[in-house]
Amino acid sequence: MSAIALTSASLFGLCGAALVGIGLFCILTHPDLLRRIIGFNILGAGIFLVFGAVARRGAAMGLSGDPVPQAMVITGIVVAFAATALAIALLRRLASLTGSATLEAATPPRSET
């Protein structure tokens, strides 16, 4: 058990697991839609990091990692960026049309900010 936990690959894998939880929490609870989009990116970063741990453990044949997951993560980062750009364009349009950057019904605590 201790031998498993001590490699840097599983350390980053665990970090990825933590980031998934943090990102998911942000998406579920934050009323600010822009913050939810950032949370979506943190969630993605966590998943990629878990995958990075898989890649690092697959080191063989003189390579420092399995190239297949690495290539998939690169593709994933670019696709996540495209999705983020589309989400932000939608949010900007929503804000222009409705004057609000949240989907919540009129929130009472707004006065305190």
Partner: peptide
Amino acid sequence: LLLRAQAHLVRHAAHPAA
């Protein structure tokens, strides 16, 4: 992308809740 969106939201939308 996020910074530009934030600047846009500050100008056009009510302050988002915490």
